[in-house]
Simulated assay, not measured.
Amino acid sequence: MMFNGQTIDSGDNSTNIQGKEVTVINNSGLSYSDVKDIAMSVFKSNFYDLGEKVENIIQDRAEKILDDYLEKICSKNPKYIENTQNPDIRYVIYEAQKNYARRGGESTKKLLVETLVNRTVIQGNCIQELVLNEALEIIPKITPKQIVILTLIFINRYVNYRIEYPIEHYSYLNKIIRSDIEIDNNYSIFQHLEYASCLNISVASVDYTMVIESKFPQIKGSEEANKIIKEDRELSLMCNMWNNSQMCNANLTSVGIAIAVANIKVKTGLDYDLGIWIKE
């Protein structure tokens, strides 16, 4: 891997690092410690000199997100460590470290790690690779509340349920994702999400009754859907927030979907296949 057009010549099975330039020639396979040493060296070489106190904070954050990422990769399957030799993956590792080091935030870190793991695992699917790269760039640029909004739009608009799936489970999923956050018609929140290429705001709207009616095949008609909403506290809250904000006008982009899928895994452990919604 090489940056900035300058090279360092090295022999087989060696790794050289100099400032902003990194050349890696390694034929013997990578271990956890190899990847960590290389990634931290790249990070230190490229981040600005901001003073000892700030540098300590930045280094701690960069190392923490890297450790969490590598541990998660190894627990998933140690063979995925080899994928970090891909120059594109090496670059997004650095970008994730940089963005977390700048702003911190536990929820941001978890979402960056989950998305980075997804990006490392996926190989040979160009569109998903590009979408996940963009998601890693966007996550630090939006707020936790905005991430919740994207996820709620996703599970209410883009996920359908089989007839045997209990509506109570769907209601509980909404509650876990919402985390007691209230959503109102704050135009700037949705405007920024649109600017960040996470969603598009349409003139047309979808009433929450229609959402519930179309989501569950066992519900027959809007009257039954309304009754179910009124009898369930969480669905009633969602109905009010949905119909009185721009959630009812929003369509997610591929990046918005990728962020929502990663957030569901972080919050609930549910592992949705991104390929259902994003295909070549």
Rank of each mutant, 00 (worst) to 15 (best):
K53M: 05
K79M: 08
G29N: 08
K79T: 08
L70S: 08
E234F: 01
A196G: 08
E114K: 10
V113R: 02
V206T: 14
K98N: 03
A262S: 13
G5P: 10
I122G: 00
E63L: 00
S236P: 11
R103G: 05
N4D: 08
T143V: 09
E134A: 08
I183N: 07
R103H: 03
E234A: 01
T143P: 04
S202Q: 15
Y165A: 12
N226G: 06
I163V: 10
V203D: 07
T151F: 02
R119H: 07
P217K: 15
D88M: 07
I57H: 14
Q18K: 11
A96T: 09
G269H: 09
K175A: 08
S28Q: 14
T143H: 04
E213L: 07
V24T: 10
I73Q: 02
T120Q: 11
P87V: 00
G19C: 06
V211D: 03
R119S: 00
D34W: 14
N26G: 08
I65V: 09
L116G: 06
S202K: 15
P140N: 14
N156E: 15
K145M: 11
N249V: 03
N16W: 03
D60C: 00
K145C: 06
Y32P: 00
A250F: 01
C198N: 10
V92I: 13
V255I: 15
A225M: 03
M2F: 07
T115Q: 03
A262P: 02
Y272C: 01
L270H: 11
S222A: 15
M210I: 12
D271T: 01
E95K: 08
V255Y: 01
I73E: 03
L70M: 05
K230I: 00
E280I: 08
G256Q: 05
D180T: 14
M2Q: 09
N133L: 04
L111S: 07
V35L: 12
N83Y: 06
N27L: 09
Y165V: 09
V266K: 09
V206G: 02
E223M: 01
Q123E: 04
G275Y: 06
E164Q: 13
I201T: 07
K109S: 04
